[in-house]
Design a binder for these strands. Structure first.
Lengths: 145, 145
DNA sequence: AAATAACACCACAAAATTTGTAGACTAATA
DNA sequence: TATTAGTCTACAAATTTTGTGGTGTTATTT
């Protein structure tokens, strides 16, 4: 299961994706719209900024905004920033590899399956972007009916 | 990431799978071979027994053993017993569904991707069984060279 | 029947992680 | 220079994970 932190991050980003190119958005507004504790959200957005997903502007008229177009940031990237490894076992992670503590087998009989799971998961999460989880925009709705 | 508990469970089961039909195996022996804290392992094995994956025998000559052939227990089943949900979001879980707390969108823009991830993961974990992660058996090795 | 072996069960404790908060600081703008 | 809004550090509360202790129960052996 994804942590709340990651879920908050995805929600905030789906909101910011819908506002891409419309100027900075206040943390306060995101927190309110998405019902995320504001100080917690602060930390998350800052982390995403330090990882070059977001950018920000201080002072009046400031706020957060996507650094690049929504389709330029994969969900895998976001998840690695806020959640950490995507793989289910440390010994099978591409970016957070760790030798399994106390693995007693010379040839691990377990990790093969989890390499498959990892690859199947990554195939999706590397190809999907913020554009794919972008919140529905009001102006995109068709009111002509 | 899978919890240590789940990793321990998988290791213990890979060991028991290799010993299928060879009588009960002592908790003590599994703990030693697989370097798992014995009291922690007790809890795990009991849970797997209560879920009908394992069976046990008390007293002298007792121990734990697989209730059915290794290929009869899927990894998905094991993981649901010891780890809980396989899906990455509560609102997308088949066996542990929960409405997303504070989901503010009428139509969630996020869950579609995670349904895909869930399905890709389950396709593997439902089809792979304990037979697939079974520890190499010594008698299966070819010493003729 | 007594002794012993081994699982069953309950309750708790330590450790780690996650989630959330407080408050001072810095930068930008009007 | 006052105000606005992000930055940063540190901490605290809550929850989950990991691990332990002790007693009970059942089966086997002698």
């Amino acid at each position: 299961m994804l942590s709340k932190k990651t879920q908050y991050a995805l929600r905030a980003l789906s909101f910011l994706a819908a506002r891409f190119d419309q100027g900075p958005v206040l943390i306060h507004e995101i927190a309110e719209q998405k019902k995320i504790p504001i100080k917690f959200l602060e930390n998350i957005l800052l982390e995403l900024k330090n990882a070059d997903v977001l950018d920000s502007k201080k002072g009046r008229g400031g706020g957060y905004f996507l650094k690049t177009a929504p389709n330029q940031t994969s969900l895998a990237k976001v998840m690695r920033i806020v959640e950490g490894p995507i793989a289910l076992l440390p010994c099978v992670s591409l970016y957070f590899y760790q030798k399994c503590a106390d693995c007693t087998e010379e040839v691990c009989s377990i990790n093969g399956v989890f390499i498959q799971v990892r690859d199947a998961t990554l195939k999706i999460l590397e190809s999907k972007t913020l554009e794919d989880i972008q919140e529905m925009r009001l102006e995109a709705l068709d009111f002509s009916i």
